[in-house]
Amino acid sequence: MNREQKIIAFCCNWCSYAAADLAGISRLQYPASIRIIRVMCSGMVHPEMVMHALAQGAAGVMIIGCHLGECHYIKGNEMALARAEVITDTLEDLGYASEQFQLTWVSSAEPERLVEAFRNMCGRLAVLQSEQSADHIM
């Protein structure tokens, strides 16, 4: 995958950001293209923010929140789930690939799961990129 590529990961303060912290302390390796932005809750990531990141050149965007039922603000992640559908559909309308967006749940005690999610996203984007460059050649 392209070294310059960036993946923006919006992590909620209470679970996924804590997991990222723990991943750091535990010296778990994850791809350098990940850029974490801490938000208070996954429910506050408006679709505009996702589109903005892509429009500014991010290769992919992730929203990572607490498991359903465990949101610190009770229903924030349910809101994120409803919006994710809108985001996925809209990405295609706007000429992006739905693969460029991912919503994931991670608890504060699951750094491995977080790192796994990061790796998966990178992998997906790499496949997408090779498909697109193949299109160019054809």
């Binding site: 505009e48 919006r83 559908e85 809108v86 559909d89």
Partner: peptide, 20 residues
């Protein structure tokens, strides 16, 4: 700088209207 498509979809979704 807004996006009318995204905003409208979001408005429909948050009012429980099936945007599809």
């Amino acid at each position: 700088g807004g996006n009318q498509l995204l905003d409208m979809m979001n408005a429909l979704a948050s009012n429980g209207i099936d945007h599809r």
